[in-house]
C-alpha cells in the first residue's frame, strides 16, 4: 500500500466532497423548506464560473472577482425565485421538474450566446498554480485552497444555521413548515433569501472548480444529479446531513476511481477489470442511494430534533 498515494487520494476525495456540499447545501434547503425540486440548480454553478471568469478578465483579482460574482449569482437566484419559482410552490413535483428542466435549456443557451462556445479560463497566479510541500508530501496549492475555502464556508453555514435568526427560521422551516408561517414571518421574503443563498453557494462552487476545469456551457448539469444523490442520502433539509453525505460520496467516488480496478483485478481478468471499473465506480453512488432509500427512506441524517 502506497500511503502517499492514499493520503493524496483522500485529499482529492475531501475536495470533491466539499464542492458537492456547496451544491447540495442550497439544494437541500430548497427541497426541505420549500418542497421544491430544482433541476436547474447546476445552472447557478455554471453562471458563477462564467461571472467569475468575466470579472477576472477585467479586474485580474481573484478575490475581488469571486466576491462580486457571488453577489451576481445571488441576484440571479433572487430573480429566478421571484419571477418563476415562486409561482410553482403550490404546483406538484412534476411541474417543478419540467420548468426547471426548461430553465436548464434557457440558461445553457444564454451562456452559449453570451460567452461563446469556447469556455472561459480563470488564470491563476504562479503561487496558486504551484505546489505546497510538507513532510516530503507534495500537493497542488490550488487544491488546498479549495479545501480551505470549502471548509470555511461549511463552518460559516453551520454558524448561520445554528446561531442566527435566519438560521432559526431555516431550521424551523425544515422540520415544520406551517409553524414558520404561524410565527408571522414574511414567508415570501424568507423563501427568496434561502433560494438566493442556495444559488450563491452553487455559484461559489462553480468559481472554485473553474480554474481547474474552465467555465463551460452545461458544466453543472452532470454534477447536479450527484448533488441530488447527496441530498437524498443526507436527508432532505438537513445541512448537517448534506455535509456528511457529500464528504462520504466524494470519498466513494474518488477512492472508487483509484482503487476499484486494482480490487477487481483480484477477481476478474485485467482487461475486463479496466473497462468495468469506471462504470462500476460511476454506479456506486446510485447504489448507495438505492440502499439508503430501501433501509432509511428519510436519509441518514433527517432534520428534526437531532439536527441541532
Amino acid at each position: 500500500m502506497d500511503w502517499h498515494l492514499l493520503i493524496s487520494q483522500m485529499l482529492n476525495g475531501l475536495q470533491l466532497g466539499l464542492l458537492l456540499f456547496l451544491l447540495a447545501a442550497g439544494l437541500t434547503l430548497i427541497l426541505g423548506i420549500m418542497d421544491f425540486i430544482n433541476l436547474s440548480h447546476g445552472s447557478f454553478y455554471m453562471i458563477g464560473a462564467f461571472f467569475c471568469a468575466s470579472l477576472m478578465a477585467i479586474t485580474e483579482s481573484l478575490i475581488f472577482s469571486i466576491v462580486f460574482a457571488v453577489i451576481g449569482v445571488f441576484a440571479v437566484g433572487a430573480l429566478v425565485e421571484r419571477f418563476i419559482v415562486r409561482r410553482l410552490y403550490k404546483n406538484d413535483h412534476l411541474d417543478h421538474v419540467l420548468v426547471t428542466f426548461g430553465l436548464i435549456l434557457v440558461f445553457d443557451t444564454l451562456a452559449h450566446m453570451i460567452w461563446g462556445s469556447a469556455g472561459r479560463v480563470i488564470p491563476l497566479s504562479d503561487a496558486l498554480n504551484g505546489q505546497i510541500e510538507f513532510g516530503g508530501f507534495v500537493i497542488p496549492a490550488y487544491r488546498l485552497l479549495i479545501i480551505v475555502a470549502g471548509l470555511t464556508v461549511a463552518v460559516g453555514l453551520y454558524f448561520l444555521v445554528t446561531r442566527s435568526r435566519l438560521g432559526m427560521l431555516i431550521r424551523a422551516g425544515a422540520s415544520n413548515r406551517s409553524m414558520v408561517s404561524a410565527l408571522g414571518v414574511n414567508i415570501d421574503r424568507l423563501y427568496l433569501v434561502i433560494f438566493a443563498i442556495g444559488a450563491a453557494l452553487a455559484g461559489f462552487a462553480g468559481m472554485l472548480i473553474a480554474p481547474i476545469t474552465e467555465a463551460s456551457i452545461g458544466m453543472g448539469n452532470e454534477i447536479i444529479i450527484v448533488a441530488f444523490v447527496v441530498v437524498i442520502v443526507g436527508g432532505l433539509g438537513s445541512i448537517k446531513g448534506a455535509f456528511y453525505s457529500a464528504i462520504l460520496i466524494g470519498f466513494i467516488d474518488t477512492l472508487g476511481r483509484s482503487y476499484l480496478d486494482d480490487l477487481l483485478k483480484l477477481f476478474i481478468s485485467n482487461q475486463s477489470a479496466e473497462t468495468a471499473a469506471p462504470a462500476l465506480s460511476a454506479m456506486m453512488i446510485y447504489l448507495l442511494m438505492a440502499v439508503v432509500l430501501a433501509f432509511k427512506p428519510q436519509g441518514l441524517f433527517p432534520p428534526g430534533g437531532l439536527n441541532k
Partner: peptide, 24 residues
C-alpha cells in the same frame, strides 16, 4: 499503469486521482 476515465455527457474533468497514481 493505465486509466480509462469516464466520458460522454457526464465526462470526468477532475483527474486528481489519476494524476496522483501516475506520479506514484
Amino acid at each position: 499503469g493505465k486509466d480509462l476515465t469516464k466520458w460522454g455527457k457526464d465526462k470526468q474533468l477532475d483527474f486528481s486521482a489519476e494524476l496522483a497514481k501516475a506520479k506514484a
